[in-house]
Design a protein around this nucleic acid. Sequence first.
DNA 1: CTAGTCCGTGTGCAT
DNA 2: CACGGACTAG
Length: 780
Amino acid sequence: MTDFLQGLNPPQKAAVEATEGPIMVIAGAGSGKTRVLTMRIAYLMANKGVDPFNILSLTFTNKAAREMKERIGKIVGPSEAKNIWMGTFHSVFARILRVEGHLLGYPSNFTIYDAEDSKKAINNVIKELNLDKEIYKTGNVARRISAFKNGLITPREYFNSPDLQEQDAAARMPQLGDVFNAYNEKNFRAGAMDFDDILLQTYTLLRNFPEVLAKYQDRFRYIMVDEYQDTNHAQYLIVKALANRFQNICVVGDDAQSIYAFRGANIQNILNFQRDYDNVQVYKLEQNYRSTKNIVGAANSLIAKNKNQLPKNVFTENDGGDQIVVHKTVSDSDEGAWVARTIFERQMNEHFDYSDFAILYRTNAQSRAMEDNLRRKNIPYRIYGGLSFYQRKEVKDLLAYCRLAINPKDEEALRRTINYPKRGIGDTTVERLTVKANQENRAIWEILENIDFFPDLDINRGAINKLKDYVTKINSYRILAENSDAFEVVNHISKTSGLMRTLGEDKTPEGVSRVENIEELLNSVKEFVEGQAEIEEGNPKLEGFMQDVALLTDQDKDDPNDRNKVSLMTIHLAKGLEFPVVFIVGMEENLFPSMMTVNSRADLEEERRLFYVALTRAEKQAYLSFAQMRYRWGKLVDCEPSRFLEEIDDKYLNQSTPEFSPFLSPEELQGFRQKRPNTAAQRNPMAGGDRRSARPQRNSPRSPVRPPAGMKKLSDQDSVSGNFEIHTDLDAGQRVKHPRFGMGEIKSMEGSGANKKAIIHFENVGEKKLLLKFAKLEKI
DNA sequence: CTAGTCCGTGTGCAT
DNA sequence: CACGGACTAG
C-alpha cells in the first residue's frame, strides 16, 4: 500500500515515513511541500492504521485544507479523509471553542468579529471613555491590542507590567490599558470574539482546564503544522501544549518565506524548533520542481542578502529558462498598459492561457492601474483579496441581521442594523442605550429587550416604539432561524429588513452591483444548504452557515466562471501558489520595500523575504517592473527603482526596457555637470554597508539596472533628471570603491560622454563593466 | 432626527 | 482619490 509514495525523492520520502516524534521539514520554495504533507497523512492512515480523528493538520488557508483532503481522499477514500481535523488555526480552534467555550463563559453561538468590527468596537470604547481620538488612533490602538493578545497578554498582565504601561504612557496613551480592558469586557458581554481571541481563548482554555487539555491531547495524536514560520506566540504554545503527550509533531516551513511578522508571526518559532523539542529529526527539501534555473538562481542571490536564516541550498534540475525581464515605465498606468500588452501578446503568440499569468503587487491600491488596462484590452482577470466579498458593505449589512438572529447580543451587528435601513432611531438614542448598557454591565440588546424597566432612559415615546418594533423584528428572525433552513431565513431577512428595497432604489451601476452581491450571497447560502443536505449529520440551519463565515476569504469561494483569468493579488496572498508567468509590479523604493520598513533591518529582511516569495511563484518567466511616476494618495509622486532590483545577481536579469536608455541628451548632461559640486551628501560613506541612511534622495537615479551593452537611442520621454556626480576624471589604474562591489581598480575605459564606461576589477567580485553615469564610484 | 455637504486624512500586508 | 466624520439646515 505504499505505491503512492513512488515519485517522491529521498528526503521527501524520508519525511513522509518519519511518523513518530518531533519532525521539522525545511521546505524550500517549490520543493513539493504540500505533496509531502498530503502523502504523510495518507501514509499515517493507510500504512500505520492511524484513525483520521486522531490527526490534526493545520494549514494556512481553508482552501489548502480542502485541496489536501481531496487528494488524501483519493488515496484512502473520501469518507475517511473527511474525518481528519484539518483547517486553519482559526477555523479549527473556533470549532473547538464552540464546544468548550462555555467553560470560559462564552455561548456556543458566539460571534466572530472581523477586523472591521473590532476597529469599530475599539472606536466606541475610545468614545465611551472620552479619550482624545487624535491621540488614541483606532488603528494604532487596534494594532497594540492585537499584539498583546498574540503575545497572550491579558489586561491583568498588562496592569502588572510597568514596562508595557510605560511604553504607552510614553506614546501619550496612559489609558491604553483601560481601552484594552473595556474592549474585552464589551466583547465578552456581546458574546463576541475577535480573530486574536480565537487563539488567546483556546490557549486559556487549555491552560485552565487540564481535563480539556487531556482530551484534546489524546485526540490529536499526530499533529502537522504547515507554514510553521508564520505562527505567532499563541499558536506556538497551543501546538506545544497539544503535542506534549505524544510528541508526534511535524512542522513544515521555510524561514525564507516568513512574511507575517506584522501580525505577530515569530520567525524564531521555526529557527528554535530544535531547541524546543527533544530529538528532533530534520529533513530538508531543497530540490525545486517549480521554476527555471534562472528564477531559482535569482531568488537565491536575493535571499542571500538576509542574515538571519537556516542554511539551505535550493537547486533545480529544470531548464535554465529565460532571464527575468526588468522593465521601466513612465507611470503607473503605463506600467499597467505594458503588463496588459505583454500578457496579450504572449497569450496570442504562445500557448499560454490567461490563467497562466499572475500580477503580484505589494499593496492592494496598485490593482487599479492593472485592472483598467486589462479591461481596456478585454483580458479576463480576477482580483483576490482587497475588499473581499464578505467585507462589502451590503453583504456585511445583511450578514449583520443574520448575526443578530443567532446572537442578538452582538453589539456591532446591532449598531449596524438598528438604524439601517433608516427607521428613525438616531445617534442620540443609541448613545443613551450605550450609556445605560455600560452602567448595567449588560449588552445593549438586554437593555432593549427590557426597555420598560428602564424608565429613566430619557428616550421619547416615538423612539421607544421604534425600538420595540426593531426588537420584535429581530426576535422574529431568531425564531425563524431556529425552525427553518439558512436560505429561507436569509432570503426572508433580505426582503423584510428593507435592505433589498433600499439598495434597489439606487439605479447607479454601483447600486446595481450591490443588489447583485446580495443575490450572490443568497446563492452561496443556497449552495450551503444543499451541500449540508448531502452530509450525514449536516446542519442546514443559519447557525451552521454563520459559524465561520467571518473566517472565510475570497479564496474559499471556487467560482467556475473564474477559470482562465489572469490572477491579480498581493504578494502575501500569493503565498503557496504558482504560475507559469508572474509579473511583479511596482518595484520602487517606498513601495517595495514599503516606506514603513526601511528603517529597521528586521523589517527590511521581511520585505526581502516577501520579494523572495514573489519571485519563487514563477515557473517559467518572471517580469519585474517599476514606474518613474505614480499616483499615490491622489497625488503624482516621483519614484525610484527598488533597491531589491540591485540585489539580484545581474546574470539572471534582462534589462530590456527600450525607453530605459542610459544615454542623455546634451542638455541633460549639461544639467548634471552643473550640479556636480553637490556630491558629499550624495556619495555614500557607508558603502556596501547598511543602506538605510544611504538611500539617495528622490530623483537620484541610483539605477539598479545597468544597461546592457548595445543599447542605442534615447527616448524622448526618458526624463532622467537629478543631481549626482559623474566622474569625468577617471582613468586606468585608479583605485575606486563601489557601494555594492567594494574595492577595485580600473583596468580600462570605454566610450565617451554619458556613454563612458569603466572596466573595473573588483577584489571580491571580479571584473565588471560599469557605466559611469550610474555607477556610484568613489575615488580612493 | 434626517439628509446634505464639506473637510481632512490616510494606504501595509490579513486570519 | 475616496471614505468617514463633523457640521448645518430643515
